[in-house]
């Protein structure tokens, strides 16, 4: 292989760093999965192989419902936040500067600018009043709160994608008598898709991880997986949580594999 073809996209060292980054990302995941099979009660002392934490987690109603609740909230919040963020990104990029642009920008990024605890206390007080006033104590408050703080995480990648995106295709579509909706649907959206995908994945993951705001907004019986874990942290954390995480990882991998196999057939 002495005569390697010149690859303009190759930058020396980049691939090495990337591979190392992936190794580093998965090393802790490896130990996490390993301890899910721990026979003992510890997440740090190995006591032989066992599946008993999986059965324990499966039998634990609280954990199961918390996991399901986390996934529900994260999916809803990711969809709502990405929808709002896409529209806002379309609204605030690629046009001449206008009055109020800075205001919109600051508003959208505001959830990033204060530590979570501050938003959490504010929401606690506000939602406490609304809950008493309306009598409604459902999951809606958590979905609303999560959607709001996920918006900047979805917005920024989409905006980064939009900025400087080639306008000529859209102009061409308009010249061919496509109406604005057709242009958006068939030209802009496909071009924007990687940004939207990145934004949605970020929003989903951020919502899945949230502890502080959830802790303050949740009503009775609304523990999510992170708040359940937080409650355990002061005492002792058992491999049960590793087992749940491993289960979630397994599910993701299966879904992804299925997705890729299916799309391969089509292609």
């Amino acid at each position: 292989m002495a005569d390697r073809r010149f690859e303009p996209t190759r930058i020396p060292g980049f691939a090495t760093v990337a591979v190392l980054a992936f190794v580093a990302l998965y090393l802790p995941i490896f130990t996490l999965v390993a301890y899910a099979f721990n026979g003992g009660t510890s997440i740090a002392v190995w006591e032989g192989v066992s599946l008993h934490w999986f059965s324990k987690a499966w039998e634990n109603e609280a954990v199961k419902s918390a996991t399901l609740r986390s996934l529900t909230i994260a999916s809803l919040a990711a969809i709502i936040a990405t929808g709002c963020a896409t529209l806002a990104a379309l609204g605030t990029t690629r046009r001449r500067a206008f009055k109020g642009q800075t205001f919109i920008y600051v508003m959208i990024n505001q959830p990033l600018m204060v530590p979570e605890i501050v938003t959490a206390v504010a929401l606690l007080i506000l939602f406490g009043m609304v809950k008493q006033w309306t009598g409604y104590q459902g999951l809606g408050y958590l979905v609303l709160a999560h959607s709001a703080f996920c918006i900047p995480f979805a917005y920024l990648p989409i905006r980064a994608r939009l900025e400087g995106m080639d306008l000529s295709l859209e102009t061409a579509a308009a010249d061919l008598y496509a109406n604005p909706w057709q242009t958006f649907r068939h030209v802009t959206l496909p071009l924007l898709a990687p940004g939207i995908l990145a934004g949605a994945m970020l929003a989903f993951v951020i919502s899945l991880d949230d502890v502080v705001i959830t802790e303050f907004v949740k009503s009775g019986g609304q523990d999510t997986l992170p708040t359940y874990m937080l409650g355990q942290m002061r005492r002792a954390i058992t491999p049960e949580v590793n087992a749940i995480s491993t289960g979630l990882l397994g599910l993701t991998v299966i879904l992804l594999t299925a997705f890729f196999l299916l799309t391969r057939k089509k292609a």
Binding site: I80, G83, C84, A85, L87, A88, L90, G91, T92, R95, F98, G100, Q101, I104, M107, I108, Q110, P111, V114, V118, T119, A122, L123, I125, L126, L144, A145, S147, A148, F149, I151, Y155
Partner: peptide, 20 residues
């Protein structure tokens, strides 16, 4: 621009910036 940003702004006003 304002119309497209409105949903995000409303949501943020209700559950992030407003309560601040």
């Amino acid at each position: 621009a304002w119309a497209l940003s409105a949903p995000a702004l409303i949501l943020l006003t209700l559950a992030a910036a407003g309560p601040l």
